[in-house]
Design a protein around this nucleic acid. Structure first.
Lengths: 270, 270
DNA sequence: TTCCTGTTTTCCACATGATGGAAAATCTCT
DNA sequence: AGAGATTTTCCATCATGTGGAAAACAGGAA
């Protein structure tokens, strides 16, 4: 019959959004996730037409997908027929957070004590950095929670720590896939400069971010090693002035000790 | 050609799980959600074969769906190739939690009107109670905002309400994990006493906290039921003298009514 | 009331995209 | 090294999801 077969389920349009590696993904699931994220982007509530504008999907399709999510409690319909994120997400989100955060929490707290600044933990998931846990600084001016946020590695201290664990060739191919978009005037946007920076990181045993992701925010990160691999990174971050006032070497030494303890406790998980 | 058309996208197998109204749901999205929930059911981690056993789906299908979720960070793959809930869920879960707090607001306000005291809503997240919403009392002397605070269940009224929904064995294992640290002279610190207390709670339909978390602070809490499960708890709390002056049974009856209305509005979400 | 406007929801023929069995590739123990 | 258990890939098949456009709805304005 149809002879124009070109690879069955694969090949997907997929197209529009950020074109990931996307080996073979299920379109409708992908779109359902787009909708959830679009809802989140609109403060958790939106009408179908807003979602259509945000995702570029046709009305009928959106409605059908939302119905499915609705049936399962992942989305809720308000009295004015608009849609909102549903309670089922609370359950899953809580579980996920606990999985990664619970173990790290006490160690992050120690880093907060050590530095007075907010401490974060992140992992490299695919080509992206994902923040998985945080212990907030007690200070009035502090970093806001960014657990769950995905960012590219090149502009963050945690990202550099995790990249530093990989051979240059791997870093190069990652960069080729993702690019190195400029986030601020300080962002490193060229591969050779990044490889040199990673060498420095390997050398010193810690990474800095001097306003490369966000102006005025400085970070210092160390790796969490589990045997041979660096499986996560922990950082402290805060206003440039306060971070710069600290003794980097001393802080890094303390953080490395904490991260080592955590890595030991992990013992093969993660 | 095919004459057995019975409504295009409709009709769906859908079958196995709880057969809801399910007018027309998207199969692959539904299955992806099954997988996430199966993962949650296995403590957040599972291999493909466990998931196959849990959901009855074929291996290839599971793998493809997980790949999609993996690509988006909703699932993560551990070093031993098993799958676990991913960090992206944390983000959505957090947003959803905040929204639930917003929906609860008018109901909490009603409780404040009813009692004159500060009203709180809390959920059980893992082994901890998390306060997700609050409506403050108009009085001069009142409880301070504690949204976001995490406490152990055994020393709070909301905690007891939520524990009372679980079988004794589950309560026992939770207590074994967390312990029952003494917060004040009134804290219940022994498991048998707690199980007896939970029986009283189930019996009366409300829980009290008589200075067990903080001396001089008394609370009365009721459950928010969503169908069969108690998914959240709402409480009023204030200075011991004022709380004790109220008619408990009458207050509890009023609060139960409000909580029931809220549970109805939630309607399957959460 | 009644008529608008901007929504959301339903419908349906079509072919695209998801499916699943079974084979290949891994990893993990003995 | 070999056997067993698990994960991953492949691809022909057709059931499944798609999206345009019409219908139903809500909420103001006249």
């Amino acid at each position: 019959m149809s002879t124009d077969r070109l690879g069955t389920g694969a090949g997907h349009a997929n197209g529009d959004r950020a074109s990931r590696a996307a080996v073979s993904t299920v379109q409708s699931v992908d779109r359902a996730l787009d909708l959830l994220e679009a809802l989140a982007g609109h403060g958790g509530e939106a009408g179908i037409s807003e979602l259509a504008a945000a995702t570029g999907l046709p009305y009928g399709t959106i409605h059908r997908l939302l119905r499915t999510l609705l049936d399962r409690g992942y989305v809720r319909q308000e009295s004015d027929r608009r849609y909102a994120l549903g309670g089922a997400l609370v359950r899953l989100g809580g579980m996920a957070e606990r999985l990664v955060g619970v173990w790290a929490q006490p160690y992050l707290k120690k880093m907060v004590e050590l530095s007075g600044e907010t401490a974060n933990m992140a992992v490299l998931e695919g080509d992206f950095i994902v923040y998985v846990a945080q212990a907030p600084s007690p200070r009035r001016l502090r970093m806001f929670a960014e657990v769950g946020r995905r960012v590219l590695p090149h502009s963050t201290a945690v990202g550099k720590v995790l990249l530093a664990d990989r051979p240059d060739a791997e870093v190069a191919s990652l960069v080729e896939r993702t690019g190195m978009p400029r986030r601020t005037a300080n962002t490193i946007t060229e591969l050779p400069a990044m490889l040199a920076e990673l060498d420095r990181v390997r050398d010193r045993g810690y990474a800095m971010d001097l306003g490369e992701e966000e102006l005025g925010v400085h970070c210092l990160a160390v790796g969490v090693r589990d045997g041979a691999r660096t499986v996560a990174a922990m950082s402290v971050s805060g206003p440039a002035e306060r971070i710069d006032a600290l003794d980097r070497e001393e802080l890094a030494a303390g953080m490395r000790r904490i991260a080592r303890d955590f890595g030991a406790e992990l013992g093969g998980a993660l």
